[in-house]
């Protein structure tokens, strides 16, 4: 464990909690892409099946349980409890355009052709593009609630911090996982446009609105 990985995990946890609180407090999931939330639930489910097979640490197990729990709680909020506030008309990204290539690639490029490892690889590739429906929805509506931009900021920051974690682990432990690193780079690059808008607008107190 190193400081980048710990702050990365905490940033990820903060993002997940911010989203749940935003929906719970405003009793609305306006501006939230249910499709991205489905993809995140699939990412956690396919990645954390090793909860059933191996124990790494109490921290590892508890964080996985929290992530999975919050992911499904978010789905419950978006598609059941606060379904009336879900903006399906703007959440139209074709997720099959993500699932098929990612599914195919996880069979072609992986560390080991075993079910758990292919599912792990699938979850890594899927996570790198899972935010696209959310970013697409913001570009369609042309704006995002400020609390939603904070959610996206911490979500993007977490994988950026993981990139530093992998530099740290390569230097100090000689550990590196090319699949996670390349996917993590793609994932972080997809946020660059949002990071620019967040830093130049939201942090200056303005609302995040895209040129319509």
């Amino acid at each position: 464990m190193n400081v980048f990985r710990l702050t990365g995990d905490l940033s990820h946890l903060a993002a997940i909690i911010i989203l749940l609180l935003k929906i719970w407090k405003t009793r609305s999931c306006a501006g939230i892409s249910g499709k991205s939330q489905i993809l995140f639930a699939v990412v956690f489910t396919s990645r954390y099946l090793d909860l059933l097979t191996s124990f790494i640490s109490l921290y590892n197990t508890s964080m996985k349980v929290i992530y999975i729990g919050c992911a499904y709680a978010t789905l419950y909020f978006v598609y059941m409890k606060f379904k009336a506030t879900y903006d399906g008309n703007h959440d139209t990204f074709r997720v099959e355009f993500l699932l098929v290539p990612v599914g195919g690639l996880s069979f072609l490029v992986n560390h080991d052709f075993s079910p758990l490892e292919i599912l792990w690889t699938f979850s890594i590739y899927l996570e790198s593009v899972a935010i696209l429906p959310q970013l697409f929805m913001i570009s369609k509506t042309g704006e995002a609630e400020t609390i939603t931009t904070h959610y996206l900021f911490f979500l993007g920051l977490y994988r950026a911090l993981y990139l530093f974690n992998w530099i740290w682990r390569f230097y100090f432990e000689g550990f590196f996982d090319m699949i996670a690193i390349v996917a993590g780079l793609v994932q972080t690059i997809l946020y660059c446009d949002f990071f620019y808008l967040y830093i130049t607008k939201v942090l200056k107190g303005k609302k995040l609105s895209l040129p319509a």
């Binding site: 990985r5 097979t53 590892n60 964080m63 996985k64 996982d177």
Partner: peptide, 10 residues
């Protein structure tokens, strides 16, 4: 790359 036993990262 040797397939290390499981992945220790979240």
């Amino acid at each position: 790359l040797n397939a290390e036993v499981g992945h220790d990262e979240l």
